[in-house]
Simulated scan of single mutants.
Amino acid sequence: MENNQNGNPTVASNKKVLYTGKTHTTGGRDGNAKSNDGKLEIALSSPGSNGKGTNPEQLFAAGWSACFIGAIGLAAAKHKITLPAGLAVDAEVDLCVTDGAYSLQARLNVSLPGLSTEEARLLTDTAHQTCPYSKATKGNIPVEINLV
Rank of each mutant, 00 (worst) to 15 (best):
M1Q: 07
E2P: 00
N3A: 06
N4F: 03
Q5V: 05
N8Q: 15
P9E: 03
T10R: 15
A12T: 05
A12H: 09
S13H: 10
S13C: 00
N14H: 10
K15C: 01
K15V: 14
K16N: 09
T20P: 00
G21C: 06
T23L: 13
H24C: 02
T26F: 01
G27I: 01
R29E: 01
G31R: 06
G31A: 10
G31V: 02
A33C: 12
S35T: 10
N36I: 06
D37I: 05
G38N: 15
K39H: 12
K39T: 11
L40H: 09
L40R: 06
L40W: 06
E41G: 04
I42R: 00
L44N: 04
S45M: 05
S45L: 03
S45A: 15
S46W: 04
P47H: 04
G48S: 04
K52C: 00
G53T: 04
G53S: 05
T54Y: 07
T54I: 05
N55E: 09
N55P: 11
E57A: 05
L59A: 06
F60E: 01
F60I: 02
F60Y: 12
A62M: 14
G63Y: 11
W64G: 02
S65K: 02
C67F: 03
F68V: 01
I69A: 12
I69C: 04
I72P: 04
L74N: 09
L74R: 11
L74Q: 12
L74F: 13
I81R: 07
I81T: 06
I81A: 05
L83G: 02
P84F: 14
A85S: 14
G86L: 02
L87V: 14
A88P: 00
A88C: 01
D90W: 01
V97Y: 05
V97W: 02
T98C: 01
D99R: 07
A101D: 10
Y102A: 09
Y102C: 00
L104A: 05
A106M: 12
A106G: 11
L108K: 03
L108T: 09
N109Y: 04
N109W: 03
N109F: 02
V110E: 03
V110T: 11
V110D: 04
S111T: 12
L112R: 12
L112G: 13
P113Y: 15
L115M: 08
T117V: 12
E118D: 14
R121F: 02
D125T: 13
T126V: 01
A127N: 03
Q129D: 13
Q129E: 15
P132F: 09
N140I: 03
N140W: 12
I141F: 09
P142H: 06
V143N: 07
I145D: 08
I145V: 15
L147D: 11
L147W: 11
